[in-house]
Amino acid sequence: MTMTERAAGEQIALLRCIGYAAFSRRDRDVDVLDLVFDSLIDAPGSEGVRRLRFAGYGVTLDVERTELGVELRVLPAGPIVVEACGDEATRLVSFLLRWPAGTQRPVRTAWVML
């Protein structure tokens, strides 16, 4: 095995460990919403506006990002707490939705780059 092959193998092993660690740190009692629409793929040409739709478990979350900021719309409507988790350096974000009355299990969006 050459030095380059060994270094590549070590990098792959490190990435695998990081992936397993990230997966094990996820919230086990939180369902994950699927990304079902992304304007970059499904409606290209919307310069300056990015639209995403996440859905599942009876919940839909629409996300719109413009130069002015991010707007969220949740269906079904009602009292809800939304937490954004992410990293500004990578622009990766996931939104956690919780219902204060406990009428539904919390849900989280898939991780996306905004």
Rank of each mutant, 00 (worst) to 15 (best):
E10V: 08
E10N: 13
A13N: 04
L14G: 08
R16D: 13
I18Q: 07
I18S: 04
G19L: 02
G19S: 02
Y20V: 01
A21L: 06
A21C: 05
A21P: 06
A21K: 04
A22Q: 11
F23H: 14
F23T: 11
S24W: 15
R25H: 14
R25G: 14
R25N: 14
R26E: 12
R26W: 06
R26T: 07
D27H: 10
R28H: 05
R28W: 05
R28D: 05
R28C: 02
D29L: 10
D29M: 10
V30Y: 04
D31Q: 09
D31C: 04
V32P: 15
D34Q: 12
D34N: 10
D34R: 08
D34S: 11
L35D: 12
V36Q: 00
V36Y: 06
V36R: 00
F37L: 01
F37P: 01
L40Y: 01
L40M: 00
D42R: 00
D42K: 01
D42S: 02
A43D: 14
P44L: 01
S46A: 07
S46L: 11
S46T: 06
E47Q: 05
G48P: 14
G48E: 08
R50S: 12
L52H: 09
L52S: 09
L52E: 13
F54T: 12
F54Y: 15
F54V: 12
G56H: 14
V59F: 06
V59E: 07
T60N: 03
T60S: 04
D62W: 09
D62M: 03
D62T: 05
V63K: 14
E64K: 11
R65T: 10
T66F: 08
E67F: 13
L68H: 13
G69C: 14
V70E: 09
V70Q: 07
E71S: 13
E71C: 10
L72G: 14
L72W: 15
P76A: 00
A77W: 06
G78V: 03
G78C: 04
G78F: 02
G78T: 04
I80W: 02
I80A: 04
I80H: 03
V82G: 08
V82Q: 10
V82P: 12
A84F: 12
A84L: 08
C85I: 03
C85L: 04
C85G: 03
C85F: 06
G86F: 01
D87A: 11
E88A: 07
E88D: 09
A89R: 07
A89T: 07
T90E: 04
T90W: 06
R91V: 05
L92A: 02
L97I: 00
